[in-house]
Structure formats: C-alpha cells, structure tokens
Write a protein that binds this DNA or RNA. Sequence first.
DNA 1: TCCTAAATATGATTTTTATCATGTTTTTTA
DNA 2: TAAAAAACATGATAAAAATCATATTTAGGA
Lengths: 143, 143
Amino acid sequence: MFSNSAKYAINAVLYLAIHSKGSEKILARDISGSISVPKAYIAKLLQELVRHDIISSERGPKGGFYLTEANRKVPMIQIVEMIDGEELFKSCVLGLAHCNEAKPCPLHEKISPYRWSLLTALEYNTIQDYADEISKNKSYLPQ
Amino acid sequence: MFSNSAKYAINAVLYLAIHSKGSEKILARDISGSISVPKAYIAKLLQELVRHDIISSERGPKGGFYLTEANRKVPMIQIVEMIDGEELFKSCVLGLAHCNEAKPCPLHEKISPYRWSLLTALEYNTIQDYADEISKNKSYLPQ
DNA sequence: TCCTAAATATGATTTTTATCATGTTTTTTA
DNA sequence: TAAAAAACATGATAAAAATCATATTTAGGA
Ligand code: FES
Ligand code: FES
C-alpha cells in the first residue's frame, strides 16, 4: 500500500504531534528510537518534511523538530503524496492508464468506493485530527 | 497496492481465460503483445503460474498456455498471493506487528474497508467470474 | 569568540524488484 | 529420425527503494 518511507514519515509526524507541545522540540534521535527506524534514515525524511512545510525545525543546540499550529492543520494526504506521489490513489490497481469510471478494470467496481473513502479520510483529516484520536486512546502507534 | 508482477499475472491469466476456449493454446508471445509486457518477463511469470497449478501449459510446436476447467475455478487471490505473498492483506499499513482490530493504528478504521473489499473480491471470485464480466463488457482489460 | 549540539546537504552502499538473455527439454511434423 | 517450435530453467543486468555515512551549516552557551 504505502512505501516504507511513507509509513515512517506518518509515524514520525504523529509522534511529533503527540510529544511536542507548543515550541518543545524533539530530536531526530528520539524519534528514531521511538518508532524504530534508523536515525540516518528518519533524519533524511524529516528534512524533506521540513522542506515541504509539513513539519518545522530549528538547528543547533536546543534545536530539533516540532509542529506549528499551521503544521498541525496539514491534511494527512500531503505526507503520503510527498513520498509516494499523487498517482497512488488515482492509478488503476490493474494497470489501466488511469482509473476509469467509464471503462473500468475488473476490480474497479469492487474497490473504488472504499478507495475513495480512504482518500477523502486522508484529505479531510489533519495531522492533529489523527493525533487527537491517539491521545484519546482510540488508536495506537506502532511499538 | 499490487506489485507490477502481480498486475501482469492477473492480466495475463484473464487474457488467457478470455481467449483460450477449451484446449486452444495461447503463446507467451501473444500474451506479451496483448498486455504490453516484455515476453521474457511474462514468460517467467507464466511458468511460475503453471508450477502453482493456476494455469496449464504444453510444450513443443502447437504448445502454449491454456486453462483447464479446474484452473478456471481458482480464486483470484491465489495469483496475488503467489507473487506478493500472504502478508499483503494481513500486515498493518503503518507497521504494527499485525493489523489489529483491538488495538488499531490511526489509519486502520479508514483503510480496512478498502482492503477488505479487495480481499473478498479476490477470495470469493474465480478467474472465470472475472473473465465472464469482461466478456459481457462490464469491465475491461488494460490496453 | 570558540566549542558543541543539533539539523542539513549530499552522496555511497545495499537490497529488492523489475527486466533481459540464453541455453535446455519436450513435442510435433516432415 | 532430424529439424523446428514451443515451454522451462537459470542466471545476468538494470532500476528503484531502502539504508547508511559523512562533511557542512547553524545556533546556543561557556
Ligand atoms: S481501479 Fe482499475 S479502473 Fe479503477
Ligand atoms: S492496525 Fe494498522 S491497518 Fe489495521
């Protein structure tokens, strides 16, 4: 479904959302440990998330990663699309040029309503929305 | 979702189901051309499908690939599992040890209906079922 | 101002997946 | 019984994804 990188990025961002209150900063090292992804790997992903304005960072001692209010309002889909691209939900599961209502592949009818609802769930729910669910123990993070 | 190999295999098998009536055999070369996958690549996949009793073949001149009645009754899921493995539908999309109803990850609720729809569509429908839909122009194959 | 701790930039390596190639076996047919 | 046409087996190469490494820049604090 998602690439490893996309999974890791989602985990990292949600970890941040839950653990960095206000301007409290979290180190790449700590995120790495908590979500069990090698530091060098997650660091690279975090840097790209910063470049795309999905999370925020500060360098130097006392630096680290954190989320602004604006960051918290970013829809989840942006994390996925940053890494796996926009085609993920738009391409046909069997390889038709584009998923096509008019000339559907054999699996289209069975899956597209559910696929569409997944897409909208990622489009209309923000990082904060998902973090809230975790805080309320309605869902859990890996580890 | 599926690997390229799995997509190709599904396409190849459905092509076979539609074009090989009875004991009529289809060449790897023809399948390759029709579904736009390099011959050497699809040939390798076809051979593995034969080894798993999902399709049938005969060597030599007048040889080729075809489907027995038994082959036509094989559920689609077998093609996918042969190639992408059984974990595809059982593993958590965010990396929890296993997809878990009791302790779900933040995306579980959103994604489960999609995955479930895909899984059941593949488990409860046979190769022939899908071929019939295509023959009745209710769905189409790539290209 | 200098040292240190952090992110950042960049690129190298490894692993996996996708693709290509080539020789071997089987079977039909002349 | 020889030639040809097909699948089959095996492995080589290429491309992409995942992982690791290292030098640079920035900012805080002594
Ligand atoms: S998923 Fe194949 S056409 Fe929509
Ligand atoms: S728990 Fe993550 S997909 Fe079910």
